[in-house]
Amino acid sequence: MTAAVIVFPGSNCDRDTSVALEAATGRPPLRVWHRETALPKVDLIVIPGGFAYGDYLRAGAIAAHSPIMREVIGCARAGVPTLGICNGFQILTESGLLPGILTRNASLRFICADVHLRVEQTDTIFTNRYRHGQILRIPVAHMDGNYIADDETMRALEDRGQIAMRYCDPAGEVTPGANPNGARANIAGIFNRTRNVLGLMPHPERAADPLHGGTDGRALFAGLVTAIAS
């Protein structure tokens, strides 16, 4: 399996993401600079976390119009599995590949902490290695993770099973107290309609090695390898 990690000025999780991908796939991913206008044929595109363009204007807004994004959008619309983590999720919403927007955390504070997540969908290329309702512990590190969408979009996300993971308490209850950033319906991650695009605020690549203090993120990368191989 060949993966590409897109790198923008201000990306800072590209290295960790590459390590997690290499551990899962057995080969290092390509790193593609945002100024490139063409992508080699790849099985997976990953937009890593960071602060592309310093979050100028809005988080992800400028990066969403980088030259490489035209190609990423085309590939994602054609069905290539595409994963956006944290700032990558923000870039995916700004580019129109995912609905809604990620706004400033309700607390106005940068949050860097382990959170609990409940897996809402398992029949996807990203989450097939998890059990339905499984509770994961994975870190978040963001200033703008407060997911907002209008009522109609929220209904569509719920009805079509596009909510990938929600923030929950350690027992798996989705409560306001377990919501770190104010996101609607405790949303931590969503799929596009065809479920080949996933945006996730938590960082699975930071929970992919015992030395990280947790390995709950590893199954996401392993699940992608299984799904793409079959």
Partner: peptide
């Protein structure tokens, strides 16, 4: 429409 505002919000 394309960049300066995000018309979702």
């Amino acid at each position: 429409e394309q960049l300066l505002a995000n018309t979702v919000i």
